[in-house]
Design a binder for these strands. Structure first.
Ligand SMILES: [Mn+2]
Ligand SMILES: [Mn+2]
Ligand SMILES: [Zn+2]
Ligand SMILES: [Zn+2]
Lengths: 171, 171
DNA sequence: TTGATAATGAAAACCATTTTCACTAAGCAT
DNA sequence: ATGCTTAGTGAAAATGGTTTTCATTATCAA
C-alpha cells in the first residue's frame, strides 16, 4: 500500500493506487506530516466527484474512523486548500463545499445554482469551445488588472429544468 | 421628491431623483410597503458601486437613521434579492456582499479575489468581446442543462498585482 | 526506540445570520 | 384627517457553520 517515493515529484500522474504516495510526497515537501486523518479525508474526496461539505466528509470518514473529529476535518480541508490540492466553493447555502483538484479540470469550474430549489448542478464538463472562451476572458482580464489567475469559477444562477416548468405563469 | 406613478412600470429609466418613485412602484406592485428603512437601504446601495456587506450597510445607514437595526438590514436585503433589485455574492470571507442591480451590467458580474490579501477587485467592466463570449457560454450551458439563467458570476481566484510581486520566489 | 513537537479532538468560543415576540407605523377605509 | 389592520420593525435570544483553546496523542527524524 505504501510505495517508495523518490526525491523528484512525479508529474501528477498518480497511477493505480499510487495517489497516496504522491500525496505523502507533497506533504513531506511542505514539511507536514501525512497522518491517518489526512489520508482518509483525501481518500474520501478522491472517491467522489461531488462537491462535499465539511460535514459530508466528516460523516463519510466517521464510518471507517469514528475517532476523527469534525475539527480535524475543517483543519485538514483548510490545509488542503492552502496546498492547492482541494478547491473550496460557496453556493450561498451557508456551508462551504470542497472538491479535489483533478487533472481533468485543473482550475476551471462551472456551477448552475437553482434559486428556487437550491439544487447545484455541476457543469464542469466544458467542451473545447467553452474552455477556449473562458480562457480568453481570463487572459484579457488578467492582463487588464495585472492579476495572476490560479483558479476560476463560473456560476449561473437561475431556474433548473424542474423549477422552470412549475413557474410557467411568470412572465 | 415623490413623483406621480402611473400604472405601467417605467422601463427602468429612473431619471434624476426618480429612482425612489420607481422603487415605490415595484414595492407596491409586489404588495409590500415602501418603508423608511427600505428607502434608506436602497439609497445607500444606490450611492456606491462597491459590494457592501450587511454590516457595511448597517453602519452607513446608522449615521442618518440610528434607529434602524441590523435585523432590518438583513431582512430588507433578503427581500431586495428576492425581488431581483439586488445581487448577493459570496467571496469566501464569511460574509455576504450586496450590490444594486443596475442597467449597465444587468446580470453579468466578474470578480477577482486575491487568495493572499483577500482583496476583491470588481472586474465587471466587460468589453464587447468578453460579454459576447460569456453570453455564448451561457447559452450553450443553459441549453445543455435545460437551465434558465437569471444571473451570472465569474470569479477568478489568484494573486493581485501587489501580492504576486511579493512572491517572486515561488515557482 | 526515543524525544521533540506537529497534529488531534472535545469543549468552548466565535460570529454572521435568523428567529422570536412585543411594539410601531404604512396606507387603506372611513 | 382619523382610526384600523396588519406588515414591518428592533432588541434580544437562538442558530449553526466554523474557529480557537488546551490537554493529550501520534508522527517521524535522529
Ligand atoms: Mn469543479
Ligand atoms: Mn457586479
Ligand atoms: Zn430548481
Ligand atoms: Zn493580494
Amino acid at each position: 500500500m505504501q510505495q517508495s517515493y523518490s526525491k523528484r515529484m512525479p508529474p501528477r500522474r498518480p497511477g493505480p493506487g499510487g495517489a497516496k504516495g504522491w500525496w505523502r510526497g507533497r506533504f513531506k515537501g511542505c514539511g507536514y506530516r501525512f497522518t491517518v486523518p489526512r489520508q482518509v479525508i483525501l481518500d474520501t474526496l478522491n472517491r467522489t466527484s461531488k462537491h462535499l461539505s465539511a460535514e459530508d466528509i466528516y460523516l463519510a470518514v466517521h464510518r471507517t474512523c469514528p475517532n476523527i473529529g469534525l475539527t480535524t476535518v475543517y483543519r485538514t480541508l483548510e490545509l488542503l486548500v492552502q496546498m492547492g490540492l482541494v478547491f473550496k466553493f460557496d453556493f450561498g447555502d451557508g456551508r462551504a463545499r470542497y472538491e479535489l483538484s483533478r487533472e481533468t479540470h485543473p482550475r476551471g469550474h462551472c456551477y448552475l445554482v437553482c434559486i428556487n430549489c437550491r439544487r447545484v448542478i455541476n457543469a464542469d464538463d466544458f467542451r473545447e469551445k467553452e474552455t477556449e472562451r473562458i480562457k480568453q476572458i481570463e487572459e484579457t482580464i488578467a492582463k487588464r488588472y495585472n492579476f495572476r489567475v490560479r483558479n476560476q469559477i463560473t456560476q449561473f444562477y437561475g431556474l433548473c429544468g424542474k423549477c422552470s416548468q412549475e413557474r410557467t405563469e411568470d412572465e
